[in-house]
Every structure is written in structure tokens, then in C-alpha cells.
Design a protein around this nucleic acid. Structure first.
Lengths: 147, 147
DNA sequence: TATTGTTATACTCTATAACTATA
DNA sequence: TATAGTTATAGAGTATAACAATA
């Protein structure tokens, strides 16, 4: 194992700095996401839901799972997007209890515009060489699978 | 410059993967932060405010700046923390308009407990060697200053 | 006059519980 | 009976505008 034998409760200065840097990246990412959403008159939750629906229509229930919130909340978020014509509800032919939420063409356009205005989420790597990107990719992969 | 000359609108596969990994880290970090806060009966906003006050007492106005919200919101968040005895308001001897919010000893203890339960923010680096941590630190630094 | 903190208001997000229509 | 979606309700965060106390 590559882990140095230090007391878990007293991480070394390097580890502390990396953890703080990750916190900064997280904060920065979130700020810019909310900002980009607000620039298109969307809340963060609306923007996340709309982005999901741009990939494929989804039952309300699955939207709640993806957004990690209760199904009852999805009703309101979809209501607001639907009243703006960005999302629509369709019946599911296979199960009449299910409603499929789907992005309209206008909804997809708004989502695209928003994602294009997300500079930091798109270009955070401008200053890194290919070698550095590979190293960063490997480190991030390992972080996410370390659980 | 180390940036390869590709069209900005069509990033290469490596870049796309790294961007997606960063998104995953951000999502994971946020989930665990909210979870840790909820475990101590705090909302995310309350946890962030309390963590700030653990470093030093701050005027309400500065808290709003740090949390990137309107000063009127800080009143309510501090109210709720104060009613639980985790935060207190003190007069500022230098300016009688100002109220300094400060964490109580109990508030500091709750914040410490919460931070200790943040595993992902603390131990995502367990699988990385010191060399890799240095490379990760440098890459993150450059990402954050690339603006 | 300008600034600090607060109040009042309205909207959104959130969880919980109860309801309906299907299955 | 179980499930999908909704409604009703209450608490919290948010922005805006107006206010009192102080500078």
C-alpha cells in the first residue's frame, strides 16, 4: 500500500492542502453552475433536472432518484419547467400509472446554452498538459473508487 | 503553452473524461457534506456558517459575503443556530451598528464532530502516494488559478 | 447621507403524510 | 396489496424592498 503510516486523525500538510483545494474546486464548480442556471432564469434544481431530461425522457420516480430528493418535489420542479414550455409530461404506453418527463426542443436549446456558459466545468484543464491530464484522471479515478 | 491546439468546442476524449470525473467528485463531496451536516441536525447552510465561525467571529455582513447570499438571510440562519446554543451574537466595541457572530464552545464541538464524519473530504487520498498527491495538488492549483 | 442589521414578503426546494389511479 | 404520481403542509433558504439604529 502506498499509504504512509500516519495517525488518521492528524493528516500531513500535503494531504490537508489537497483536501482544501478539492473543497475550493467544489465551491467554484457549484458557484458557476448556479450562476449559469440563473443566467437562464433557472434554479439549480431546475437546471439539473432539465440536463437529465436532455439525455432521455424519464419517469418522475426515476428523476427523484437521480436528483436524490423525494418524488413529491419533482412534481413542482417539472410543473415550473412545463409552464415555461421547457419540459412536457407524456404517458407511458407500458404502464398507465407512469408519466414520462421529456425535454422539449426549446428545453434542449436552453440546456445547451446553459452548458456552453459553464466555463469552469468545461475548461478547467486549459493550463494542463496531456501528461498532467492523464495523471489527474488516474488520481480522480482512484479517489472515486477508494470507498 | 501546454494546451494542445484543438477546437475549443470539441474537447478530446481525455479532457471529457477528466471533466466528468471532476463533476463526480463535486457531486460526491456535496452529498457527503450534506449527509454529515444532517447527521448533526444541521442544514448545509448552517454547517457552512458554523464552520466559518469556528475560525473567527465575524460581522453578519461578512458572513453574507462569505456565504455568497444576502445579509437578510444570515439573520435567520444565525437565529436558528443561536436558539440551539451553537452561536452567539456579540456587540462590536468599535462600531455599535455591527453584531459579531461567534461560535460557542458547544458550537465548535459540533463543528469538529461534523468535520470528523466527513470521510470523503478527508480520506479520498488514502490510495495515493506522496508523489501522486504532489501532482494532484499542482494540477488543482493550476485549475483554480487558470482563470 | 451611508451603512449595519433586521423585518416583511414572496418564491423555491425539501421531507412527510395522505390521497388517486392504476397495477 | 403495492406502486406512480399528486396534493397538502410545514420548515428552511433565497432575493427584494423597506425600516431602525448608528456612523
Amino acid at each position: 500500500m502506498a499509504t504512509p503510516r500516519t495517525t488518521p486523525s492528524r493528516p500531513d500538510a500535503l494531504t490537508l492542502e489537497v483536501v482544501e483545494l478539492i473543497g475550493s474546486v467544489v465551491a467554484r464548480y457549484h458557484e458557476e453552475y448556479e450562476e449559469a442556471a440563473a443566467g437562464h432564469a433557472l434554479t439549480g434544481a431546475q437546471a439539473r433536472l432539465l440536463s437529465l431530461l436532455c439525455l432521455e425522457p424519464l419517469p418522475m420516480r426515476r428523476l427523484a432518484q437521480r436528483l436524490k430528493c423525494e418524488p413529491s418535489n419533482v412534481t413542482g420542479i417539472v410543473d415550473r419547467l412545463e409552464s415555461r414550455g421547457l419540459v412536457e409530461r407524456r404517458p407511458d404506453p407500458a404502464d398507465r400509472r407512469v408519466k414520462l418527463a421529456a425535454a422539449t426542443p426549446e428545453g434542449r436549446q436552453v440546456a445547451r446554452n446553459m452548458q456552453n456558459s459553464l466555463r469552469f466545468a468545461r475548461e478547467p484543464l486549459a493550463g494542463l498538459s496531456e501528461e498532467e491530464r492523464v495523471a489527474l484522471r488516474d488520481a480522480l479515478r482512484r479517489m472515486l473508487s477508494a470507498d
